[in-house]
Amino acid sequence: MKIDNSLPLEYSTEENRLKILGFWIFLAAEIALFATLFATYFAYQGRTGNGPGTEIFEITPVLINTFALLTSSFTIGLAVNAMRLGNKKAMLTFLGLTLALGLVFLGVEIKEFFTFVHEGATIQTSGYLSILFSTLGTHGAHVSLGFFWGLFIIIQVSKYGLTPHTANKAFIFSLYWHFLDVVWIFIFSFVYLKGMM
């Protein structure tokens, strides 16, 4: 394996550079996936059948979630920065912080789902609610997956140190996490805020 020391660790081998580009292309595919959910969501607005509509939204949990995710996106940015400085300890701290914020997000979202169901809004109630739960759920599932992925990276960085391999993984994970933040911003704006207008 040829290692190019003039570049940050995560870019230092050709294999790493391939993986980063490949992951960007994967993220593009994810854009298409969420676009489909949004397209369907917009078309189903108001198609609530006998069930409730956007009146089930509450602003507080949504705000908590938004700030949790925005901050986590900031901390993972700092983790990558620390990684580039070669500061393993700071990097792991920031990564841990990121995942903790992710957990907060998941906790609040799950609680929100329970309230919805309590108010008679389930995924089976109407076309509108089916797509609402699917959109939120798809994002939530991504965050959950991201949580375990992040955990794996923490374990591997602690175990093997900062190698071209682990650094590459951590960097790619950061791309994924930022991307989920972007998706959340769109959900926040066009599902929640628009719904509460």
Binding site: R17, I20, L21, W24, A28, A29, I31, A32, A35, F38
Partner: peptide, 22 residues
């Protein structure tokens, strides 16, 4: 990175597709 053009084209293309679909 050196793939900057590819990455931006890739994102713009997909945003185009997203907008067309929606």
């Amino acid at each position: 990175s050196e793939d900057k053009v590819t990455i931006y084209t890739n994102v713009i293309y997909m945003v185009f597709f997203a907008i067309v679909t929606i």
